[in-house]
């Protein structure tokens, strides 16, 4: 996918092309607060894989070429909304499906993304959440944790009480 149409041996591509793929990755999964770094790592992992999987390499090369022709520009310079439309028009292509799934796979396994979203990852080494907030939700009352002693209707309608009738009406509204 380098300018002379050959992937480099170490799977790295020229910076211009990485920038194009970063733009596509960001268009697929836009997180305005995220810097380029995780998108960049995502693209590098995809290119590393493409460098040892000829079929993937061909698919990406052909897809990029076709997109460039369609947009008439280097993809890094195409406005995000236009890129979005270009991709939407190609939603049914194998290029799109492959790129989309690979970007999602790597991007959401990136620890910088985890941190930005607020997912802390491993917890065992920190003693789990037993003493670190597994039950710290305070915007709802503490619910019962034991099973109810009320009889359970196994066959037939729920017995209707005035309270649950009201609740049902409210939630049906």
């Amino acid at each position: 996918m380098t300018s002379d149409d050959r992937p480099s041996r170490d799977g790295r591509s020229d910076p211009g092309e990485v920038a194009e793929l970063v733009s596509l990755a960001r268009t697929l999964y836009p997180h305005p607060g995220l810097p380029d770094a995780p998108y960049q790592r995502t693209v590098e992992q995809i290119l590393a894989r493409a460098s040892v999987e000829p079929a993937l390499w061909h698919l990406l090369r052909d897809g990029l070429t076709e997109l460039r022709l369609a947009s008439g520009a280097h993809l890094g310079e195409v406005p995000a909304t236009d890129l979005h439309d270009l991709l939407t028009a190609r939603e049914e292509t194998r290029f799109f499906a492959t790129l989309r799934d690979l970007v999602a796979w790597h991007l959401y396994d990136d620890h910088e993304v985890w941190a930005a979203v607020g997912y802390p990852g491993a917890s065992f080494e920190h003693g789990g959440y037993r003493d670190r907030g597994f039950n710290d939700l305070a915007w709802l009352p503490e619910p019962r944790i034991e099973e109810s002693d009320a009889p359970f209707v196994e066959i037939g309608s729920l017995t209707v009480t005035p309270e649950n009738a009201a609740a049902q009406t409210r939630s049906n509204a």
Binding site: F134, N135, D136, L137, L140, P141, E142, P143, R144, I145, E146, E147, S148, A150, F152, L158, T161, E163, N164, A165, A167, Q168, S171
Partner: peptide, 23 residues
């Protein structure tokens, strides 16, 4: 088991919907 956060949401929602048999 004690109630974790996800359970607190589920159980309160269940109670408000008129369900009785949650734990």
């Amino acid at each position: 088991l004690p109630a974790n956060n996800n359970y607190k949401v589920l159980a309160n929602g269940a109670a408000r919907l008129g369900y009785e048999h949650y734990a």
